[in-house]
Amino acid sequence: MHSSTVLTRRRAIAGAAGLYALPFGWGPAAAQGKGEPDQLDRILRSRVLRVAVPQEFPPFGFTRNGVVDGFDIAVARMLAGDLRVTLKIQPVASGDRLAALLEDRVDLIIASLGKTAEREREIDFSTAYAPTYMGIFGDASAGPADLAALKGRRVGVVRGSLEETELKAQAPQATAVAFDSSAPMLDAYVRRSIDAFAAGNVVAESIPDAAMRERIKRVAVLRQSPCYIGVRKREPRLLARVDEFLAHARSSQALMVNAMHWFKHSVSPEMFKDTKG
């Protein structure tokens, strides 16, 4: 690929996130081989990309003034722009993400999706696009920061999330309180109906209320939990095309700029190196 084409494509990816007002410069890949159309063929022929995004999980996805927005939605826009197709987003609850993909309601999952052995048996995963970790967060004046301090405490989790699974496995002495999304969970924390909450670090770091953020400390790290794009099994061309897009989005720094916008706090460029995993 010529250097001018690469530059145009990088600008196109960034443009889809609102970083540049430039037309897209890289057309869809031609179908390879013969036989039945695969998912990538169907997307390119219909010129529509259907993506499951977070329903109410700021900063990854949320509704503001009637418009769905957030980090994952921006990534979905960039990918649709790179494919030169129309984006059709479907906000879903955390527990409905895999079902939406497996039931062919969407083509991809871009919804703060973590990778587990159980999920890998059902779907395939792209390279990581948002290296994050899961933690438990609570009041900075609540004493020592460790899992033992959670004994008898009420800890909020999003129902069906990896945080819920990890909390129950690593801190069974805590009382897990499940919510349908992060917004009511954080509201319950503000009202002190729960003592702490389990979430991705960027969720805690992006709480709009600055005073509330200052009162929060990390009690424990549950696990490193990068975000991946979910793809149905036996769709190697679509998976390769998604990974190709992510490689360009990383090298153009479009992912980095997107993260700096939505995650608020300083993000190390090392997080967005073009690595597998």
Rank of each mutant, 00 (worst) to 15 (best):
I13D: 06
I13N: 03
A14V: 08
A14F: 05
G15Q: 00
G15R: 00
A16S: 12
A17K: 00
G18I: 00
G18M: 05
L19N: 04
A21M: 15
A21N: 07
L22I: 08
P23I: 09
F24A: 01
G25F: 00
W26N: 06
W26F: 12
G27W: 02
P28E: 00
P28A: 02
A29C: 06
A30S: 05
A31N: 06
Q32G: 13
Q32E: 10
K34I: 14
K34D: 14
G35E: 07
G35A: 05
D41I: 04
I43W: 14
I43V: 15
I43D: 14
L44K: 08
L44H: 09
R45I: 00
R47T: 07
V48L: 15
L49M: 01
V53E: 05
Q55F: 14
Q55G: 15
Q55L: 15
Q55C: 12
E56C: 09
F57T: 12
F60Q: 13
G61W: 08
R64K: 13
N65W: 11
N65I: 07
D69T: 14
F71T: 02
V75P: 03
V75L: 11
M78N: 09
L79R: 07
G81F: 00
D82T: 10
L83K: 06
L83R: 07
I89M: 15
I89D: 03
I89R: 12
Q90T: 14
Q90V: 12
A93V: 13
S94K: 14
S94E: 12
G95H: 15
G95R: 15
D96L: 02
R97W: 01
L98S: 03
L98T: 09
L98N: 10
L98A: 08
A100W: 03
L102C: 12
E103S: 14
E103Q: 15
D104S: 12
D104F: 07
D104E: 13
R105Q: 11
D107R: 01
L108G: 02
L108Q: 04
I110A: 10
I110P: 01
L113Q: 11
G114Q: 15
G114E: 14
T116W: 03
T116P: 04
A117K: 10
A117I: 13
E118A: 13
E120P: 10
I123R: 03
S126I: 01
T127Y: 04
A128P: 11
A128C: 04
A128N: 03
Y129Q: 02
A130H: 06
A130N: 13
P131I: 13
P131Q: 12
Y133N: 05
Y133G: 08
M134V: 05
F137D: 02
F137T: 10
G138K: 01
G138P: 02
D139K: 09
S141T: 09
S141K: 04
A142I: 02
A142H: 02
G143L: 10
A145N: 07
A145C: 11
A148H: 15
A149L: 05
L150Q: 11
L150S: 10
K151D: 07
K151P: 03
G152R: 13
R154T: 01
G156L: 07
G156S: 10
V157P: 00
R159L: 07
G160T: 04
